[in-house]
Design a protein around this nucleic acid. Structure first.
Length: 232
DNA sequence: TGCCAGGCCGGGT
DNA sequence: ACCCGGCATGGC
């Protein structure tokens, strides 16, 4: 018997609503072309560095790494904790993140020999579990790596996704990561390009309209969307 | 000045 | 199974 981890089922009305939201955002903000990085390895590093951190700070850390020619798996993996931590300092939590990067790199070198093509050969679900087993890689980081580095249709949920969807009443305020992810995974076709743009567009929306903690954003492109609920 | 940013882990209940 | 403190910098 298959275990129900959420109450959501595939549902034509929900699919329609998700596409309606997508089209509104796309019409407003255009193609985002995410993830903003120079290659798959940089995507994975950035995904760890941006944990609970402003992207502008991550950019400084990435620039430091590139300046030391360290944006390469073998080189970064061979770097002492202290040195790596110093380079990524602007991104904050530098001791924690240096350890997490090194954990990931040990896994990446050992399991895939630092070769992104090898990583891409592993099917989505299995690879997701492997990534989640690395200390320092949680659900959002794993899904970001899967989608934007490996090119697999794994929808990324983040604080913005949750803010938009709960604030507009599409999901309950208390909805967790898995419930939110299921909304997209179970009601959209599993297309990588669609998932990439959708997540990026939600970020664009929040940066433009939802940064404040006010419950409703003025001029929100989604204000006209009928509040079809994804509850239960 | 104080609050916040594209989380995650570990220990306590 | 939750809940919470800790981790740290730079920008407004």
């Amino acid at each position: 018997m298959e275990r129900m981890t959420s109450g959501y089922k595939k549902n034509a009305a929900r699919t329609k609503t998700l596409f309606r939201i997508y089209r509104k955002l796309y019409a407003r903000f255009g193609p985002q072309g995410w993830w903003p990085a120079d290659g798959a390895f940089e995507v994975m590093v950035g995904a760890i560095l941006t944990q609970n951190t402003a992207w502008s700070n991550v950019e400084k850390a990435i620039a430091n790494l590139k300046g030391e020619n360290a944006m390469r798996p073998a080189r970064m993996a061979g770097m002492p904790h202290r040195k790596l931590a110093a380079l990524i300092k602007p991104s904050g939590f530098f001791n924690v993140k240096a350890a997490r990067l090194r954990n990931f790199l040990r896994f990446y070198m050992k399991r895939f020999d630092g070769d992104i093509r090898a990583l891409k050969r592993v099917p989505l679900d299995g690879l997701r579990k492997e990534l989640l087993s690395v200390n320092g890689i949680g659900k959002e980081t794993a899904d970001s790596i899967l989608l934007y580095a490996a090119g697999k249709p794994s929808f990324v949920v983040d604080a913005y996704t949750k803010r938009v969807f709960s604030r507009h009443g599409f999901v309950p305020e208390e909805a967790g990561y898995d419930a939110l992810r299921d909304v997209f995974m179970k009601n959209l076709p599993a297309r990588t390009g669609l998932f990439k743009e959708y997540h990026a567009l939600l970020v664009a929306l929040c940066k433009r309209h939802c940064l404040s903690r006010k419950p409703v954003c003025r001029g929100c492109p989604l204000s006209g969307i009928k509040g079809h609920s994804f509850r239960g």
